[in-house]
Nucleic acid binder design. Structure first.
Lengths: 189, 189
DNA sequence: TACACTAGAGAACGATGGTTCTCAGCGCAA
DNA sequence: TTGCGCTGAGAACCATCGTTCTCTAGTGTA
C-alpha cells in the first residue's frame, strides 16, 4: 500500500503523461486510475475533482520547467548566456519523443475558458517565467522590455515546434534572441 | 428557409463563435444548432460529423486571417512595412473583446492528438503563414531564416497576449521584429 | 381535396464521462 | 477468534454528447 505522498505522486505523474499526450478532456479518470495503479476512491480522496488534478499536474510541470531552466542556466557564465540557455533547453525538449508543445498553452486553450482554476495556474506559470527572464535581463543591465521580447520567442518556438514538427525552430529562436540582445546593448560594439 | 450555402455559412459562423469562446469539446452540437438556428438534421446533412465542422471552421478562420493580414499589408509601402504590419494587425485583434488567443493553436492543443484532420488543418494554416512571411522577406532581400524568426514572434505574441491579457504584447513583438530585421540587413546602416 | 415530399423540432439511442456507492477481503486490537 | 475499520475493484448513477430517428406540419401539384 502506498502512503499518501507516493500515491499522490503516482497519480500526478500518470495524469501528466496522459493529459499531455491526448489532451485533458480526452482522458477519463478511469484511464488515470489504470495508468497510476491507484483506485478511483483513493484518487478522489487525494483530489476533490478532476479539475483539482489538472491544477496539480500543472503545478508539477511548473516545478519541472523551473528545474530544467535552472539546470540549463547553470552551465552559463554570463546573464546573456543564461538567457540563451533557455533555447538550448527548448531545443533538447523539442527533440524528445512525444513532444506536443507547451502543456500550459494546450491546457489554457482547452480549459481556460471553462475552468478559472486552470486559467489561473497557467497564468501563474507564464508570469513566473517572465519574472525569471526579467531578472536575468536586469543582471545583464538591459531594459525590461528585452525580457518580454525573448519570452515571446520562447513561447512562439514552443507552439511552432509542436505544430510544424520543425526541429530547427529552437535554433532559429535562439538566433533571433541574440539579435534582440545585441540590438539592446548600448552601442559599444 | 435557407439555401445550402447560407445554412452552411450560418453554421460555420455560429460554431466558430462558440468553439472559440469555450473550446471545441465544451460545446455540444445542440448549442451549435441553437446559435445557428439550423436544425441538427440539416447540420448533419451539411457536415458528416463534428470533426468535419471543426475543420470547416478552421478553414474559415484561415480565410479571415489571410484577408486581415492582406488588409494590414496593403497600407504599407515596403516589404519591411508589410512584415511589421502583421503586428499592427495583431495589436488590433488583441484588443478586441473576447480575444482568446489563436484558434489554431487552441484547437491543436485540444484535438491535435486525437483528430488527424484537425491537426492537418492547423499545420496547413501555420505553414501558409510561414510561406507568406517568407515571400515578403524575400521581397525585402533578406534570408529566409528571418521569416521564421518573425513568425515565432507573432505566434508567441498570440499565446502570451491570450494568457496574460497584457495589451502591450503586440507592440513589444513589433519592436523585436524590427531588431531582427535591422540585424539581418547587410551592414549598410 | 388528396397525395407525395421535405424540413424542423426534439425525442431517442448508445456511448462515455465524472463521481459515488457497494461489497468483499484484509489487518489489527482486544 | 471476533468484530471494526479501511481499502481496492469495479458496479452504479446521472448527466452529457454525438448522432440518428420519428413525427408532425406545411408546401406544391394535380
Amino acid at each position: 500500500m502506498l502512503d499518501d505522498v507516493s500515491a499522490r505522486t503516482a497519480v500526478v505523474a500518470a495524469a501528466d503523461r496522459l493529459f499531455y499526450a491526448r489532451g485533458v478532456q480526452s482522458v477519463g479518470m478511469d484511464a488515470v486510475r489504470a495508468e497510476a495503479g491507484v483506485s478511483l476512491k483513493r484518487i478522489y480522496s487525494l483530489f476533490p475533482s478532476k479539475d483539482d488534478l489538472v491544477v496539480a499536474v500543472l503545478r508539477h510541470r511548473t516545478e519541472q520547467w523551473d528545474a530544467g531552466i535552472a539546470r540549463a542556466a547553470a552551465g552559463a557564465a554570463t546573464p546573456r548566456g543564461r538567457l540563451l540557455a533557455v533555447f538550448d533547453f527548448l531545443d533538447a525538449w523539442f527533440r524528445e519523443d512525444g513532444f506536443r508543445g507547451c502543456a500550459f498553452i494546450n491546457s489554457f486553450g482547452e480549459l481556460g475558458a471553462t475552468s478559472p482554476a486552470v486559467a489561473a495556474a497557467v497564468r501563474e506559470h507564464k508570469e513566473s517565467f517572465q519574472r525569471y527572464a526579467r531578472g536575468v535581463v536586469r543582471e545583464a543591465g538591459l531594459p525590461d522590455d528585452v525580457a518580454l521580447q525573448v519570452v515571446l520567442l520562447a513561447e512562439g518556438a514552443q507552439t511552432t515546434a509542436a505544430i510544424t514538427q520543425d526541429v530547427d525552430v529552437a535554433r532559429q529562436a535562439r538566433r533571433a534572441a541574440e539579435a534582440i540582445l545585441d540590438a539592446a546593448v548600448p552601442a559599444t560594439a
